[in-house]
Amino acid sequence: MQTVIQVKNVSKNYRSHHVLQNIDLTVNKNEIYGLLGPSGAGKTTLVKMIAGIETPTTGSISVLDSDMPKLNTMTQIGFMAQSDALYGELSGKENLEFFSSIYGLKGQKQKERIDQASDLVNLTNFLQKPVNQYSGGMKRRLSLAAALLHDPKILILDEPTVGIDPVLRQSIWDELYKLSKSGTTILVTTHVMDEAEKCNQLGMLRDGKLIASGSPRELKDNTSSTSIEEAFLYYGGVHHAN
């Protein structure tokens, strides 16, 4: 199995505030790795460091065998931020054109990729509308499309399905499975416990510490839990001494 993301003993402090402490995790090729944790656990900081936006205070992160942050490696990463980083004055199409141009896509190739990505998120019919007329869910989907445009080897999604209706959420997950089968490695953060079950591998993050990791099944079996939520409670130290 090929290691795509390797996080080694990473800590991150903002002044005296410890956001992340001694995180070690490995993501392999084709995996869908889920970072599960409540808000404030440090999920966003961790994925931002992996994406190359932030740098760790101590420890190292390597992506595709090169140390982050590195601009060259960043061309292989598709990043969907937690806030919909879109230009409200522009139409959906103009937004996608902008982001694809940054990755050097142009002409026919650009058009194809925009068509594919917007079809994937069911936005083809709304591409001409200005983004500030989009609903919250539509903005999420457009952000996802923008992250997919350049066909990245690694997809980093920060809370991708917030505000998206269950039917569409299912179809987005179906697409993520397809992408992962075709060779894309996916790192996704979520605070929704049932969504975590859909990942191949899980990392549980609480108060800046990685409290457990493994496949959803392992995590449940090891704690004799019936759900991920129970397992999380167990690892979080809120279990009954019996």
Binding site: M74, I77, F79
Partner: peptide, 14 residues
């Protein structure tokens, strides 16, 4: 403030 700067910084843009 809209997060697009961060989004741009996740791209290889210098």
């Amino acid at each position: 403030t809209t997060g697009t700067l961060e989004r741009l910084l996740a791209t290889p843009m210098r």
